[in-house]
Design a protein around this nucleic acid. Structure first.
Length: 606
DNA sequence: CGGGTTTGACCGGCGC
DNA sequence: GCGCCGGTCAAACCCG
């Protein structure tokens, strides 16, 4: 409801702004009217100079005067006519704006309606038996197809076990709803805490917030490092933090590269053979800043070696390259979701706020901070918006709350995507590029691509699929059809991110070549826009005047229990790209399960 | 030579 | 207490 209120308020604001524009134009007309005599006066002066030189006869003087009067009258008339045109234009714009606002509100209402329906469904699910609920989860989110079933050999058993386990644990309320309700409470950003450079300060920020009187603020606090967090919390929170030792965000994606290109710089510091997986697990730490606490683990999926499991932990305490904000925001949002107790029953809904990137680049903290910083500006208008966090699940292995974003699931049915036959579903040389696509040949604005949620099921080829909102969106002028773009299209936001661009340290490597399938795009666009979940996603996207939120189909994985998600929105600044580039290596295409040598997977960090 | 990777050693948590 | 395991350290090594 708060969201709706903000929308309405925003609409009113826009309306008022337009009205004031109208006043301005009227004022302008007055100025023009005043300008007439002024012009007269000026010309008289000029004429006076002229007359001093030439000293024309009085009759000639009168002639000139009459002539100039006529010219001035003409000018006045033309100015009036121009004013009339401007007024008409103004009226047209007002009508257009009101129409847009109305559509906007309709969309929002529809969005809320969908949410309510899902909530109702969820409640009805809760009354069912566990098994039934389990099945309902699968139904509501969609079972994965065979491709993913190979990733998961004990989904149901594990799911039940974990559900049992969770039922014993008081703190696992969130987990009990994992996969069904994923919510991220995103708080408005406090500039005073924006330049924190230590993880603990990140924590202290939320502590400050909590001390300010809102106990819920604790729930989104970052938990790195956990041990220190425990010292400053009361018992309940300590228990919570004990349970939520280190929030982790795991991203499953098909990727042939040793690591996901998430735009960040990583240094490998260790490698281990973990139990239960013949593939070694590589440990990386962020090297953008020496003090950055962020770690990531990269491991091949044991069941499907083509799947790369990247687990992120911690928050960046430094400004991120634009190319890294996509994954950072994603993991941030997911991690925040983990730490938020305020889960709702809305499927995959993430309370969050998208907004233009703050003009202060120092606010960009990456991950959670990056995300909160994004909320700063828009929070005035949109105190709380909701994201549809698509492919998420929560598990608590090793007392590490882990949310898994599964980008491996083919779920074309959700969008009704129909790819041209003959296109390989997964190419061998897949490369998931989370970084904002940019090219050295592009100017700065090109770095600022709108966040795009990709349809990771896109057929082979570079398939960047998401919504793209032009700067007009800040005026609430969003047209679904035209704002949708599929493919590699640099997002042009000339000034919006400029301050951040100027501080961007690294440009992402140029993305691979796109292979656009226009028919597919058209079909996808149509399917997407007709999908109610996309509408909800769009509603969330509308809350962001800068970030663009697209849809992606993927899988919600809950404790190895995979279910399909559907459309989604991303957080502001998100850009997910699924890059599956065809390679001539057909043998690889034929067998995505081809085993690799260890060195093949781990010889290179980002 | 500097920066990144490799790899065995080490440490702490946890279960038995 | 012991062993297992995940995670980290740091010296050796590699590479451009």
């Amino acid at each position: 409801m708060e969201v709706e209120k903000s929308f309405l308020g925003n609409s009113v604001m826009e309306d008022n702004r337009m009205k004031s524009d109208g006043d301005d134009s009227e004022g302008t007309s007055k100025e023009i009217n005043k300008g007439g005599p002024g012009l007269w006066h000026g010309e008289e002066v000029a004429e006076g100079k002229y007359s001093l030189k030439q000293q024309p006869s009085p009759r000639e003087k009168d002639k000139d005067l009459i002539k100039h009067k006529q010219e001035a009258d003409d000018a006045l008339e033309s100015a009036k006519a121009e004013m009339g045109e401007v007024r008409e234009e103004n009226e047209r714009l007002k009508v257009l704006l009101s129409r847009i606002v109305k559509d906007y509100q309709d969309l929002q209402l529809h969005f809320l309606d969908v949410i309510q329906k899902e909530e109702t469904n969820k409640k009805s699910m809760d009354t069912s038996t566990t098994a039934e609920a389990d099945e309902l989860v699968s139904l509501s989110l969609g079972r994965t197809s065979s491709t993913n079933s190979t990733h998961d050999h004990q989904p149901r058993k594990d799911h039940h076990e974990i559900m049992k386990k969770n039922s014993k644990d008081e703190d696992n309320e969130v987990m009990n709803e994992a996969g069904l309700a994923l919510e991220l409470g995103c708080r408005s950003f406090e500039p005073a805490a924006a330049v924190d450079h230590e993880p603990m300060k990140v924590n202290s920020r939320s502590e400050n917030n909590s001390s300010a009187g809102d106990p819920k603020e604790d729930e989104v606090s970052e938990i790195w490092p956990p041990s220190k967090m425990l010292k400053t919390r009361d018992d309940d929170v300590s228990q919570q933090q004990t349970h939520l030792k280190k929030a982790r965000v795991s991203v499953r994606a098909r990727c042939d590269a040793p690591t996901l290109n998430d735009g960040c710089q990583w240094r490998k510091y260790g490698q281990k053979i973990a139990k239960g997986n013949p593939c070694p697990r590589a440990y990386y730490r962020c090297t953008v800043s020496p003090s950055c606490p962020v770690r990531k683990q990269v491991q091949r999926c044991a069941e499907d070696m083509s799947i790369l499991i990247t687990t992120y932990e911690g928050n960046h305490n430094h400004p991120l390259p634009m190319s890294a904000t996509a994954m950072a925001s994603t993991t941030s949002a997911a991690a925040s979701m983990l730490q938020s107790h305020s889960s709702t029953s809305q499927q995959g809904l993430v309370n969050s706020t998208t907004a233009p990137i703050s003009s202060s680049t120092s606010n960009l903290q990456g991950h959670g901070l990056n995300f909160t910083s994004l909320s700063q500006n828009s929070s005035r208008l949109l105190p709380q918006s909701q994201f549809y966090f698509p492919n998420s699940s929560i598990s608590t292995n090793n007392s590490h709350p882990t949310i898994t974003l599964d980008l491996t699931a083919p779920s074309p049915s959700h969008f009704g995507l129909r790819f041209p036959s003959g296109l390989p579903r997964y190419s061998s040389s897949t490369c998931l590029n989370f970084s904002s696509s940019s090219s050295s040949s592009l100017d700065h604005s090109a770095l600022l691509q709108a966040p795009n949620w990709i349809n990771n099921h896109a057929a082979a080829g570079y398939f960047n699929y998401g919504t793209e909102l032009s700067h007009q969106n800040r005026m609430n002028q969003v047209v679904v059809g035209s704002s949708l773009k599929i493919g590699k299209q640099p997002f042009q936001e000339p000034n919006f991110y400029q301050s951040y661009i100027q501080n961007s340290q690294n440009a992402a490597p140029a993305p691979p070549q796109n292979h656009l399938y226009t028919e597919t795009i058209a079909t996808a666009t149509k399917a997407i826009t007709s999908n109610p979940k996309f509408q909800s996603a769009l509603a969330a996207a509308l809350t962001s005047f800068v970030g663009t939120n697209g849809g992606t189909s993927a899988v919600v994985r809950e404790n190895n229990h995979i279910v399909n998600g559907s459309s989604s929105t991303a957080s502001s600044g998100l850009k997910l790209k699924w890059s599956e580039s065809l390679t001539p290596n057909d043998s690889m295409i034929q067998s995505t399960h081809q085993p690799r040598t260890e060195s093949g997977w781990h010889h290179q960090a980002t």
